[in-house]
């Protein structure tokens, strides 16, 4: 009787641990939304990627469709080459889509935003996105603002 009780309690303890792990994986972490299923890779070259990081999200119209897989410097053109994993669900991105690096909020994380083009051909694994727009560097922006202000003051 005592033995059975102990076994039942220990069983409950182990089950509670597993349930807590399930809670952590499903409710707390992004396990259910993280997997980019059946991805294909698309490259894009930027003049300046700002502080874009690997694993940053790739979005279209604000919806997350993939994530940045690799960032490297192309030593021939001195541009940053960004390799993105796009979820296989979204196979119909036009080849003349453009990519830009935006910031979430004023000071938030940076992410890649894709704008769809109009062509009927679709991007496939390993394709390049030609139209890109660099990250907006806040410091440069402030510098330009100050510069134009002082120009205006002179006139």
């Amino acid at each position: 009787m005592k033995r059975q009780f102990v076994e039942i309690i220990v069983g409950l303890f182990v089950i509670a641990g597993v349930v807590a792990l399930l809670f952590l994986s499903l409710k707390v972490s992004n396990l259910n939304s993280v997997a980019v299923t059946d991805p294909y890779q698309v490259n894009a070259r930027f003049d300046n990627i700002g502080s874009l990081k690997v694993r940053a999200p790739v979005t279209m119209a604000g919806v997350k469709i993939g994530r940045v897989n690799e960032i490297r410097l192309d030593s021939a053109s001195y541009q940053a080459e960004v390799v993105m994993d796009i979820s296989g669900e979204y196979k119909n991105l036009p080849v003349d889509s453009s990519a830009s690096i935006n910031t979430q909020g004023l000071l938030g994380e940076q992410f890649v935003s894709l704008e769809p083009g109009g062509q009927q051909e679709y991007l496939a694994n390993g394709d390049h996105i030609r139209l890109t727009q660099s990250a907006v560097v806040l410091e440069n922006l402030i510098g330009e603002l100050l510069f134009s202000n002082s120009q205006g003051a002179k006139q």
């Binding site: 952590l24 994986s25 409710k27 707390v28 972490s29 992004n30 396990l31 939304s33």
Partner: peptide, 12 residues
């Protein structure tokens, strides 16, 4: 916010 920031492999 929690789900966005907590990564299963990295954190849990």
């Amino acid at each position: 916010a929690m789900q966005q920031g907590v990564d299963f492999q990295q954190d849990v």
